[in-house]
Structure formats: structure tokens, C-alpha cells
Design a protein around this nucleic acid. Structure first.
Lengths: 226, 226
DNA sequence: TCTTGTGTTTGAACATGTTCAAGGAACAGT
DNA sequence: ACTGTTCCTTGAACATGTTCAAACACAAGA
């Protein structure tokens, strides 16, 4: 007897799952998250309504799967691109633009990711348990960007920087979601201008004059970080 | 014939509206927004299901009404309290703590306010059309806090400060919603520490040395502000 | 081939936000 | 008192996310 309870997923099932997943994403992209019904998805994927729920515990779970997949496909790409430049600004820009590039075709529905309650039980909250691994990896990217850069900075700041930069990235994504300007030019401007500012601040923070202020900020960060 | 179409609201109707409103808030407070059904509300208010929709176009509209009412009741109180001190820090603390105090009993459901799509059509988004007047008034409070304070600051910053402080306040509220610590002590710490920092930054920004940085930040703010 | 168990699929049923056509109540003008 | 208008109330009906018991498919063992 096998003590392990392997889920025994048949190839056929995997195919069905994929059919549902892709039908869903296509519909989400076309009509947005809200406008797409589970019945639409099931019909397009050629399964009964209940079928969709066999593979995805909820409508949101499909978005979560996309979120995971995106982070996965992003990872190797990021590692590669990090070799292009040692400048922190370039590295941050790469990470942020790569992320937006992946989100771009899905702009219609990835707002669903931000639409959720400040509730640890809500699977789609960017701070929830379910998105933990995604979040950790995104922070890890920032860590890599920082570690490998030639920008000098105080060690006490360095420790918190990956998390802070992740927050910075999240803020940009949030702005991008709200951005109604054509081609999201305003987001582009925001990135251009804020990147310089962020890097400047990191540089300046090393000045002896800035030490007290830096300490205060970091103390604040520590009370706020879980 | 009366050319004007006055809405002709009977007193009885106003009473029914209030009954629904209060039943809803009570249930929201007790069970949260999601857990409360419109049928629950209607039953508690002793009207038919459709009745609730005669007065409130949606479940969320009830929360919006609360939001409006809160801002209203807040206004005079704030104006009064602004006379207590001329120090910017005191004034900001007053506004923020008063706001949290009003939200506190409704913590279970005011997360609904933040749970909404970055979509100008979404009535509950803090940036939407429907919440415009609320937002404007909140920003106005910050303006009053700034104008009447004895803290000196550059005029170019002063112009944007109310909006920036409003964002600051929103960030604190968001943190508070996420804050699972008992009695939301972490939020209290955040306020204590960040207030000092904010005021310090405003002061420092006036130093000649800071001029370029300040200009950069304000330029950024202007591209980001609609 | 028949049986059995496991993995997959189905569609009816349910809960809940929302809409709406119909009915009732109050009141003004006749 | 009758009539019409306007405001208010009702509950059935609908759309859609979700659940679930039953049916089905298929492979392994008899």
C-alpha cells in the first residue's frame, strides 16, 4: 500500500484544466473579470459549470493561478536581465517594466488582484497567505537588484530595502491600474521621475548628515513590518 | 404645472430610509459587510426586500451613505478642534485620530471602502466620482490644518501639501484596516512615529540645501496628480 | 468479461445582489 | 365621493458564484 496519497492526475484532466484556464484568461482579457461569468468560461471550455470548480476552487482562484504563472515565467527572465547593468536604477527599471509588460495584456482583469479586503483570509489580497510565495519571490528580485548593484548604501538600509522597493513597485502597479491616460503615459512618466528620485534618496541616505533621519525612517519601517 | 421636479419625500419615507440605514449599519458592524445580506437588512428593518433598493441603489450605497454621514459629522468637530493648537503636528494628529475614532466602531465593514476596483465607475473607490465631495472635504481639512499652523514651509510645497497629507492619511487608514494587533497598537505606533517624520520632512524641505530635491518631488507630484 | 475503485464530469439546487411590474397609500383637484 | 397623480411597498423573477450528490470513464485486478 502506498502511504502517500498522490493526487493521481490523469493527462486528460490536465488538458481539461488547461482548457478551462485558457478560456477563462481569454474571456477575462476580453471582457474583464467582473463581466465574465463562470458559465461563460465553462461553455467556452466545453465543460459543465461544475467542471470549472473541480479545477479551480473559485473564480478568483483562476486569477491567482495566472498570478503564480506570471511570477514563475518572470523569474528566470529577471535573473538574466540583471546581468545587463550594475546600476541600481537600470536594474529597478528592468524589474518594474518587465512586470508591467507581463501585466499589460491582462490589464482588464488584474485589477481583481487589488480589489480585495484587507483580510488575511482573502486569497487575493497582495498581503494574504496564498500570495505569500509570490510576494516573497518579488521581494527576492528586489534583493538581487540591490545586492548586485554598484550603488553604495548604508547596511542598515540595505536590510530593509528589498521590502521597501517591493512596496514601491506595488504602488506603481496600483497607479498603472488607475491610469486612464492613453497608453498609460502617465505611468511611464511616474516611473521615469520616481526612479531617479528613489535612487537619489538611497544615495543621499548615506551622507553623515542624514543619519538621524535615516534611523528614524528605519525605525518606522520596523514597527510597520510584520 | 410645476416645472421643477421636486423629489417630494414624505416624512414617513424618511423614517423608513433611516430604519433601513440603521438596521444595515448594525448588521454590518456585527457581522461585517460580506456576511450581511440584503434580506437580513430588509427583515431587520421590517420592509420587503425591494424596499431596501428603493432607498439605496445597492448594498454598497449604504456604506457610501455612512461614509458621507461620517465626513459630515466630522467637519464641524474638526474646525473646532483646530483652535486648540497651532502646531502642525498636533493638528494632523487631531484630524487623523478623529477620523479613526469615527471609523473604529465600524471596523468590521469599512474595509468595503477599500475593496474596490481602480475603476472610475466604481462608486466606492476612494478616487471615484461618487466619493469626490468626501475626498475634497478631507483634503480641505488638511488645508485648514496647514494654513492655520505656525510651521513655516516653502510656498510651492504648501500648494500640494493638503493632497499629500490626504494620501498620508489614507495610507494610515489602510494600514489600520490591515492591522491585526490587539487594539490596533501598531497603527498607534505608526501614527506616533510617522507624524514626527512627516513634520520633520516638511521643515527640512525649507532648507536651501533641499531645494533641488524638493523641486524633483513636487514635479513628480504634479505629473501624478490628475 | 465482470467488478471495483478512483478520478472526472455533470447538472440541479442554493444563496444572494439586483430588477421590475404590479399593487397600495396618501393627497389634491374636481 | 370620485379620479388621477405621485410616492412608497411588495414579492416574484433573474443572474451569477458556489456546492454537491449522482453519474460516468477508465484502468487494474478477479
Amino acid at each position: 500500500m502506498t502511504t502517500a496519497m498522490k493526487p493521481h492526475v490523469t493527462p486528460r484532466a490536465e488538458e481539461t484544466r488547461k482548457r478551462i484556464y485558457e478560456a477563462a484568461l481569454e474571456l477575462f482579457r476580453e471582457n474583464g473579470f467582473e463581466q465574465t461569468t463562470m458559465r461563460d468560461i465553462a461553455r467556452k471550455a466545453d465543460v459543465a459549470l461544475g467542471g470549472a470548480y473541480y479545477y479551480f476552487s473559485s473564480k478568483e482562484a483562476i486569477v491567482l493561478a495566472f498570478y503564480h504563472e506570471m511570477q514563475q515565467s518572470n523569474h528566470d527572465q529577471i535573473l538574466e536581465l540583471m546581468d545587463k547593468s550594475k546600476k541600481l536604477k537600470d536594474r529597478l527599471r528592468t524589474i518594474i517594466e518587465k512586470r508591467l509588460e507581463l501585466l499589460m495584456p491582462n490589464r482588464r482583469f488584474c485589477d481583481a488582484l487589488f480589489r480585495h479586503a484587507p483580510d488575511s483570509t482573502d486569497p487575493l489580497s497582495p498581503f494574504s497567505e496564498e500570495t505569500h510565495s509570490i510576494r516573497e519571490r518579488a521581494i527576492q528580485h528586489m534583493q538581487i537588484a540591490v545586492e548586485g548593484s554598484d550603488t553604495r548604501m548604508p547596511t542598515d538600509l540595505k536590510r530593509h530595502l528589498p521590502y521597501l522597493l517591493w512596496l514601491y513597485q506595488m504602488a506603481i502597479i496600483l497607479f498603472w491600474l488607475y491610469d486612464r491616460s492613453s497608453g498609460q503615459q502617465r505611468t511611464q512618466k511616474l516611473i521615469d521621475k520616481s526612479l531617479g528620485l528613489v535612487v537619489s534618496l538611497i544615495r543621499i541616505s548615506g551622507l553623515p548628515l542624514m543619519r538621524p533621519l535615516r534611523k528614524t525612517v528605519l525605525e518606522l519601517v520596523e514597527t510597520v513590518t510584520p
